[in-house]
């Protein structure tokens, strides 16, 4: 199986967050519907050439967020109680957080940022 995860060296977020994002995107666009089995941690790690411990962390965080379910000995799969809206909401929040940080570093005020955002809604 080829998972074709693409990572960006220019992305300053920790690698485990980038892995989480790529998994969430696959679920959000419907490529990985509820109950889809996820590759084992080692399988995904050797496939995308990222250390086992980093993939393990991504899976743990996704489990904590209720996106996937993991059972000892059975592996992990996409949760069937997953709320697509909530998932998209989380993704949106992440983008907003990035935008907020960037704006702050550029000394753009909250009002200004809000005005800029209106262009896209």
């Amino acid at each position: 199986m080829n998972f074709n995860f693409t990572f960006s060296q220019a992305d300053k977020r920790p690698m485990y967050q980038q892995i989480m994002e790529q998994i969430i995107q696959r679920i959000a666009v419907g490529d990985w519907p509820p109950n889809t089995s996820l590759p084992s941690i080692r399988q995904l790690a050797t496939e995308i050439k990222v250390s086992v411990i980093t993939v393990k962390r991504a899976y743990l965080e996704l489990e904590r967020e209720g996106v996937i379910v993991t059972q000892q000995g059975k592996g992990s799969w996409v949760s069937d109680t997953i709320d697509m809206n909530e998932l998209r909401h989380e993704e949106l929040e992440q983008h907003l957080e990035q935008a907020g940080k960037l704006a702050k570093s550029m000394a753009i005020s909250a009002d200004e940022l809000l005005n800029m955002l209106k262009k896209y809604t």
Partner: peptide
């Protein structure tokens, strides 16, 4: 690096 990682399929 890829080949080093591939060898780890065996845990």
């Amino acid at each position: 690096l890829d080949e080093m990682m591939n060898s780890l399929q065996d845990e």
